[in-house]
Nucleic acid binder design. Structure first.
Lengths: 141, 141
DNA sequence: TGTAATTCCTCTAGTAACTAGAGGTTCAAG
DNA sequence: CTTGAACCTCTAGTTACTAGAGGAATTACA
């Protein structure tokens, strides 16, 4: 049996975050000691590791919920898990592409004021000037 | 003179967001009509475009405030603008690198359950299994 | 066994950067 | 001059946590 602190140490998930997950229904309510403190078993540890891994991969909690609900599922439900992974992969690739655009533009901006700042810094100008950048950047993260 | 809706159309920034920026001090309080509606001038339009561009580049509002405060600055203050650009660039590169790690791992996960799902889908297993992934992914976005 | 340090409890509120809605007023067109 | 679109303020909700207050339980050591 682990205390909430033990669980935190083993999973690198902070104590308040564990309680937060419990509140959100991602973790089942654990047993309590006579003094009302949470005690967790192996299953809770695994589940929390699973959640943490998903989060590290960038899955929003809502998708983690989706995956958790598939536990022990069979047949067509399994496709769901696969779909989530695929969707996430597409999303990541999209994010990479957009960030690479930003990288190019930020490089341009940064170079604009490299060392010499004569009168008005070109960086400020570049930040404000949308026209100089090729390729629109979208509004999403 | 532009109404808030005009400004919104010209900048692609939503109306409530413009008011939000005003509340945060990013935009100065505009003139009002007799009926209490906001009226903006050219300067406000430019400032809002600047803010939007910064946001598109991924700068948090706090950094945008920093840049805005540099307007008309001179000498060493100008380095601040350059620093912000550099910092943002480093951040973007970092995000790209991490996302590329995720891409690799998601590919692995997705492939693990490609079409055939025998008994227990490997995707679910792979999501939970942190050990199979090389290179730790950090906890930050 | 006593006590002090540590960990735990709940609850509220704050973070970023908006977005949505309620309930009401003003403006512009026909 | 009336309608309908756009505007006003204000509150609350979103995501995924984090921080703090105030107090109780557990653990370590003498």
């Amino acid at each position: 049996m682990y205390s909430i602190g033990d669980l935190s140490r083993r999973t690198q998930v902070k104590v308040p975050t564990i309680r937060f997950y419990e509140g959100k229904g991602l973790l089942p309510k654990p047993e309590r000691t006579a003094g009302n403190q949470r005690r967790y078993d192996e299953a809770a540890l695994k589940r929390l590791l699973f959640i943490r891994h998903c989060r590290d991969l960038g899955l929003p909690l809502i998708d983690v919920v989706g995956l958790l609900s598939l536990e022990g599922a069979a047949g067509s439900d399994l496709n769901r898990a696969h779909e989530i992974a695929e969707k996430q992969l597409a999303d990541v690739r999209d994010r990479i592409a957009r960030l690479q655009n930003l990288e190019a533009e930020l490089t341009r901006i940064s170079v604009a004021c490299d060392g010499k700042h004569d009168h008005v810094c070109a960086v400020l100008h570049a930040f404000g000037d949308h026209s100089e950048c090729m390729g629109t950047h979208s509004h999403k993260k």
